[in-house]
Design a protein around this nucleic acid. Structure first.
Lengths: 114, 114
DNA sequence: GGGTATTATCGTATATCTACGATTTACGAT
DNA sequence: ATCGTAAATCGTAGATATACGATAATACCC
């Protein structure tokens, strides 16, 4: 049995789910925040502040890269990671749109009476 | 090896990652949208429009419930699902905050010059 | 109580995720 | 060419995820 029958779902949902999966690990969220806070960050620094082995951090970074959230620039013997601001903006908008759609038919307590 | 060393990460990141994981499947996104669009939705209807077996849909609904995104109300022999608007608002705000933090140190092309 | 419909749960097979150590690759210095 | 450092990849073990059919639980009708 395939893990997910992606063919049967709309492309935008498949794409959004893929990004959500990239975000679905606290370590990756922490990596993202560290990279963003430092503007750009060498892999070694990230390994230092994470409670994970170097190979594991590298693997998480690869997932973030494959999701398009960051990119790594080879800088001599090291790799410098930075967030993709454009992608982040697009993903942020996609999530905002999702939650807007999910909430649009709900009137939890009261409607806007102004 | 434990799947994730949640103890070592900040609580808010762990919580956000958990919600992201609930969203990390196109089927669950579609379920959420269907439930929201119909205001409330009986499980059987959801099974009809999903390309999944009844047991699988039930399992996905359980995950959405455990993430707090929906709740199911037993209505006679069936179960009626609806989204938790308050939770969705909170989660939406959490994601907005995340993307704001991630983007705050980035000036991709130009700053707001108005 | 017996029968039917609806949903949840169980058991299970396969695939993916997470983590690690070990190794390989790439670069700079000697 | 050799060594050392930094990062990616390989191989692997164990836990989770996804999907299904089968079964159990619940409510309704008679």
């Amino acid at each position: 049995m395939p893990r997910t029958r992606s063919e049967t779902y709309p492309d935008d949902l498949v794409a959004l789910a893929a990004v959500a999966r990239a975000l679905a690990h606290p370590g990756r969220l922490q990596l993202l925040e560290a990279i963003a806070a430092r503007r750009s960050c060498v892999c070694g620094e990230l390994v230092e502040l994470m409670p994970l082995a170097q190979s594991t951090v590298s693997q998480h970074l690869k997932e973030l890269k494959e999701a398009g959230l960051v990119h790594g620039v080879v800088d001599g013997p090291r790799t410098c990671y930075c967030v993709d601001a454009g992608k982040l903006a697009a993903v942020g908008a996609a999530f905002a749109g999702l939650f807007a759609r999910l909430g649009c038919c709900e009137r939890p307590k009261e409607e806007d009476h102004g």
